[in-house]
Design a protein around this nucleic acid. Structure first.
Length: 598
DNA sequence: AAAAAAT
């Protein structure tokens, strides 16, 4: 162990490497954003007039609320960036570090809030080993192991137990930035380890805070004061983040609690009362808890939004604003905010900057790109043929046999009703399947997911509730039975396969109803090195779909393909679709051009 | 238009 390069070392080295460059070999770009130029000099009121201190007990650690850190970072990402977030702070071990977590009960957290819930050290004794291996827990706390501690030895140990060998690009860049105290907007492909990228710095930071005496205000006797808040758009994703965070924080003394709707409130309240450092939640339930004054956000030092673009789109934005801006959450600059997603439309990035202070924008690859670990196929399937076509795919899959663990197939449909009816149809036709959507009870949803994960029902029919974030091992095939209207949704859906370096297959059923997706789909496929015909234009995609239908094209933006003489429009592009079998000649094309212009 | 998210 001592001879090998540690996980943390790798992170440290790469932090140093990358602070000077705007891009690196793995195509990550880091830079301060131009979206909020006016904000870079803003200092929140409570931080004004503060003399850069000479760093007593919390010095080496550049904590999230430390004012001098922030000031160290003023300018745009340039050569002085190196001093900014990398280098010295991500350096050698510090002695003050262990004091907080080494032995249960040391230091700080005694005032008013911890003891009534039994205290975190007692909680730790009862902590169930989430790894199911009881053999080497003592080793984990070996006192001699005082080597390169950056995230904290207990956390490093948990990372090893999770069999994480080497940080992914997003982790390698995001973790040092977060450890240095900077706000972050991070975009990286599905399945590239974003959860860990925001969990590690949060857990590490809270471990360090345990060494300091934190005063929690005395509010209502039953109010709890989490130090970190992680929000996600679906209940199941919150559950999953909770599970992950619990693994990472095993025996660190950091308590993780989850709160979401559809499940009994009382149980969640009891968990909260036993103490909470990191609260993982869906927005609705959290708003409820805030209104009941069972949770205060006053002590929050870390705010993470997973699937951040989703959290800030029309459906969620008011709730998020309510939570972040209309409660007692510290202002940007007094907390550390991290936004993560695989997709992040520009207009939502702009909106998101409201929640950030002097932040760094990190993108691994193009924002919204897909991983080339996923083989994408598009097949032209009429609405009426979709079921039998799916049946063919499933039969073929069954015939090809399955190696090792049961290969799972996730089938996305557009509506809840459609999910129910397809599930039933599959079931009747001898394919063990289940479904998940927002009209099912929470129990049913969780049961469906369990049954799918275990391979008991290797087919899951889902609405977009399952499109984002869920990490289900052995999903070999994602079928877009109904394609979404938005390419970003497509990216998230197919991202349920091809995770953590594994390959996957995604099949889309495409027909005339999906014309509005065609161009972006073609672009995406080309970008992720998918087999799209020679010139991967919209035209060629259609040509592929038409299976040999003749396509004549003179103008790049005018497309003629063969399908039932219907006129379609794709964005600015006019598309004429004629009979599948008809050869398109120049005369016909001219006629169609007239049609389009007329 | 649909999906998700509190009771």
């Amino acid at each position: 162990m001592s001879t090998r390069t540690s996980w943390a070392d790798l992170a440290a080295n790469s932090a140093a490497e990358n602070t000077t460059a705007g891009s690196s070999a793995n195509n990550a770009s880091v830079g301060t954003t131009s979206a909020a130029p006016a904000r870079s000099t803003y200092v929140p009121p409570h931080l004004r007039n503060r003399v850069p201190s000479s760093d007593p007990p919390a010095p080496a650690y550049s904590g999230p609320a430390s004012s001098n850190d922030r000031q160290g970072y003023g300018g745009p990402a340039s050569s002085n960036d190196r001093q900014g977030y990398g280098g010295s702070r991500w350096g050698p071990p510090r002695n003050d570090y262990r004091s907080g977590y080494g032995v249960g009960g040391v230091g700080g957290r005694t005032g008013g809030w911890g003891n009534r819930s039994g205290g975190w050290d007692r909680g730790r004794e009862r902590e169930v080993n989430p790894f199911g291996d009881d053999d080497d827990t003592e080793q984990a706390f070996s006192e001699q192991e005082n080597t390169e501690i950056d995230l904290g030895e207990a956390l490093n140990q948990n990372i090893r137990r999770c069999k994480y060998v080497k940080p992914t690009p997003v982790q390698r860049h995001a973790i040092p930035i977060s450890l240095a105290g900077r706000d972050l907007m991070a975009c990286a492909q599905t399945g590239s380890g974003k959860t860990a990228a925001f969990c590690f710095p949060i857990i590490s930071g809270i471990m360090k805070m345990q060494g300091q005496s934190a005063q929690r205000p005395l509010r209502g006797a039953r109010t709890v004061y989490p130090l970190a808040l992680i929000l996600s758009p679906t209940r199941e994703l919150s559950m999953q983040i909770h599970e992950e965070a619990r693994k990472f924080s095993y025996q660190t003394g950091v308590k993780v609690v989850v709160a979401y709707g559809g499940a009994p409130l009382n149980q969640q309240l009891r968990e909260l009362e036993r103490g909470v450092d990191i609260l993982v939640a869906t927005p609705g339930r959290l708003v409820d808890l805030l209104e009941r004054a069972r949770v205060s956000l006053q002590m929050v030092k870390y705010l993470a939004l997973d699937e951040a673009d989703r959290m800030l789109d029309m459906g969620f934005e008011p709730q998020i604003r309510k939570i972040v801006e209309q409660n007692d959450m510290p202002l940007p600059g007094a907390r550390q905010t991290m936004l993560f997603s695989a997709t992040f439309p520009k207009e939502i990035q702009r909106l998101a900057s409201d929640f950030l202070f002097n932040y760094i924008f990190l993108a691994v690859g193009r924002v919204g790109s897909s991983t080339d670990l996923i083989v994408q196929r598009v097949e032209f399937v009429h609405e009426s043929d979709k079921r039998s076509h799916l049946m063919d795919l499933l039969h073929a899959q069954r015939a090809n046999g399955v190696q090792g663990k049961q290969a799972l197939t996730l089938v996305f449909v557009e509506t809840k009703k459609g999910a129910d009816s397809l599930e039933h149809w599959l079931y009747v036709n001898g394919f063990p399947s289940t479904s998940i959507h927002g009209d099912r009870t929470q129990q049913e949803r969780e049961q469906a997911l369990r049954s799918f994960r275990s391979g008991n029902t290797p087919i899951l029919v889902a609405t977009d509730v399952a499109a984002r974030g869920l990490d289900i091992p052995h999903v070999a095939h994602v079928v877009n039975f109904d394609l979404p209207n938005d390419i970003d949704d497509y990216v998230h859906r197919i991202g349920r396969t091809g995770r953590a370096g594994k390959t996957g297959l995604a099949t889309a059923f495409f027909n005339e109803g999906n014309a509005s997706l065609a161009r972006s789909l073609a672009d995406l496929m080309q970008e992720s090195n998918q087999e799209v015909p020679a010139c991967c234009s919209l035209v060629m995609l259609f040509a592929l779909l038409m299976e040999g239908g003749t396509v004549v094209l003179e103008e790049a933006d005018l497309v003629a393909v063969t399908f039932e003489g219907t006129l379609h429009s794709v964005g600015a592009v006019q598309i004429i679709i004629v009979e599948q079998t008809a050869a398109v000649d120049m005369g016909l094309l001219a006629d169609m051009e007239d049609m389009v212009q007329g």
